[in-house]
Design a protein around this nucleic acid. Structure first.
Length: 571
DNA sequence: CTTCCCAGCGCG
DNA sequence: AAAGCGCGCTGGGAAG
């Protein structure tokens, strides 16, 4: 059952559609529902387990959640439209050809915000107090219905070219997973990561000293700054200025081309150690210090905004608070509530395993049967040297050309011609200006106009520049197929896990809540007596994701699970 | 004063 | 050990 929810001047318009996107015979015209009665109506209709169709999940779902209405599944027209408009699986359809003049405005990205406190938790009326909501709806119900019908038609044609390839099922799975991801993002933002402010403050005190007045350096940084000024004979030095710092280093005979950590480490000058310490602490203070704590943690929860579809590869991005960059230093502040545990689960070595499955490299699959894939590869082709094997494989996925990683490539290619050939092929597609596609059908963006123009350059100098741009794009497409297919896997893992956790709740069992997701890692906050069942759900979902993407293949996707009180104890 | 870009570094 | 992919955020600094 498909139910379209569209904005309406008086609240919402609701219409039942067929799977193809036509109005259901019993619902020729949409039903208008006032804002006040919407949550109740939606709650009632949810009992029939519909798929809710809407322009953007983030416009509807947060307010429904705030009103206490949780839904099972949806279809996000914006996210799905973006996939269908660019996917190679639908490139031959009129939907893709008309993508330039999409009926929907694709404002996936909102203007970037400065560091602002997170919005207060929405209450039941928030949706309807929002002046944006009271504006004339951007799309009529009929426009949204037609958009859904067009997307369904494109999906229906996805398998036409190569039916045996299951392209239609794969793309359908991707659309469902992406829409589920949008719901999970809204739910996780509402729930938030359990964050103990007093533990965070203790960490800051230990590293930096007491909280300084606004705009001042903490004591430890001030002391390091004093030492640096002496050691570098620069009494007014501000080490936060790369230019000043560079000049001071040069004055003291430290000939670096940048002030990056790894380059500074080359020097043995006595100022280097305090300088690196200063940089580390200064970063903590600026990015995750007291100001961050004030702005982002409230009532024991960190509630970041996730941006589903924010990365071309299908990974999520985030907005505000740097949610996907929580440094190890402060992970001790992420702490389970009393009587609860954090389950931190991580798909080990996900990208190499995805490469094995994509390339169907049976030799590498033998190595991937081991819990430690790098050790398996080391045994097969690198004389047992695990570090070498890891650098070589990651280099193949990233497109390393120089350094140890680049030198190891021929050795890797000899042992695993299929796996290496797969990423090499993806690189060649990109260099030639073509697009590449993930397992489930998300395609890389086409090259820009400027890139295409650069490839027709005349002079030798221009040609060198063009070749460099081509190789750069090749590294991007090389990585895209692996990173993007790993994101496909992770989206299915997450959606499957949500389904299983919801089932536990429906069965009246104690169940955990998803509170964090980071590319190949999930965190579940969970009552102690639900831990065992949650782990079963996490592992079952991982296996389900593998079979959804690749069928029954002899490649393991092991999940490493840690049950901890605080995040720093995981890994 | 605001706006934009860069260098640097955090995460995977 | 080295600098190959994808992001967001900060402070500095130049430009308007």
């Amino acid at each position: 059952m498909y139910l379209l929810l569209a904005a309406h001047a008086d609240g919402a318009a609701l219409q039942e559609l067929t799977a193809g996107g036509a109005p259901h015979p019993d619902a020729a015209t949409p039903r208008v529902i006032s804002a006040a009665e919407l949550p109740g109506v939606v709650r009632q209709l949810e009992k029939r387990r519909p798929r809710w169709i809407w322009h953007r999940t983030q416009d509807w779902y947060p307010s429904l959640l705030a009103a206490g209405v949780e839904l099972e599944r949806c279809y996000d027209l914006t996210l799905c439209g973006a996939i269908l408009a660019h996917s190679e699986f639908t490139a031959h359809t009129s939907y893709a050809r008309n993508a330039e003049k999409l009926t929907l405005d694709d404002e996936l990205q909102q203007p970037p915000q400065a560091l602002l406190p997170p919005p207060p938790p929405a209450d039941q009326d928030a949706l309807f107090d929002d002046p944006g909501f009271r504006r004339a709806p951007r799309h009529t119900p009929e426009e949204l219905r037609e958009e859904f019908a067009a997307q369904q038609a494109a999906l229906g044609d996805a398998g036409a070219a190569i039916p045996a390839d299951n392209r239609q099922q794969r793309l359908q799975l991707l659309l469902a997973a992406e829409s589920a991801g949008a719901m999970i993002a809204a739910e996780m933002q509402r729930t938030g990561v359990p964050w103990r402010e007093e533990l965070h403050e203790q960490i800051l005190f230990d590293y930096l000293g007491p909280r300084p007045p606004q705009g001042h350096r903490p004591a430890k940084l001030e002391a390091l700054n004093g030492a640096l000024r002496q050691l570098l004979h620069s009494p007014a030095l501000n080490p936060d200025s790369p230019q000043e710092l560079m000049r001071a280093l040069h004055r003291n005979g430290i000939e670096v081309k940048s002030t990056r950590q790894w380059e500074l480490k080359e020097s043995t000058h006595p100022a280097i150690e305090p300088l690196l310490e200063y940089k580390k602490l200064s970063r903590l203070h600026a990015a995750n210090g007291w100001t961050w704590l004030d702005a982002w943690v409230k009532d024991g929860r960190f509630q970041p905004e996730y941006v589903v579809g924010g990365v071309v590869s299908g990974r999520w991005a985030s907005r505000g608070g740097g949610a996907l960059q929580i440094p190890r230093q402060i992970r001790g502040a992420v702490h389970a509530d009393p009587g609860h545990k954090l389950i931190v689960a991580d798909a080990s070595q996900l990208e190499p395993r995805v490469l094995v499955a994509l390339a169907q490299d049976s030799k590498m699959a033998e190595a991937a049967r081991d819990k430690d894939l790098y050790a398996g590869i080391a045994a097969q082709g690198f004389g047992g040297d695990r570090a070498k094997a890891k650098v070589a494989l990651l280099g193949a996925i990233y497109g390393a050309t120089t350094g140890e990683s680049g030198r190891l490539m021929p050795q890797l290619a000899r042992t695993y011609p299929r796996a290496v050939g797969f990423v090499e092929q993806a690189a060649r597609e990109g260099e030639a200006g073509r697009t590449v596609t993930t397992r489930l059908g998300r395609s890389s963006p086409p090259p820009s106009e400027g890139w295409l123009r650069s490839q027709q350059s005349a002079t030798a100098e221009e040609q060198r520049r063009a070749d460099s741009l081509a190789r750069s794009r090749g590294r991007f497409t090389r990585n895209f197929v692996v990173q993007g297919s790993a994101a496909d896997w992770a989206a299915c893992w997450l959606a499957e896990l949500r389904r299983r956790l919801r089932a536990m709740r429906t069965d009246g069992l104690p169940a955990g809540e998803l509170v964090f997701f980071l590319h190949d890692e999930v965190m579940v906050h969970c009552p102690q007596d639900a831990v065992a069942d949650c782990i079963v759900a996490i592992e079952g979902a991982a296996n389900a994701a593998k079979e959804l993407l690749f069928g029954r293949i002899p490649v393991e996707f092991p999940v490493s699970v840690a049950v901890v009180d605080s995040y720093d104890k995981a890994k």
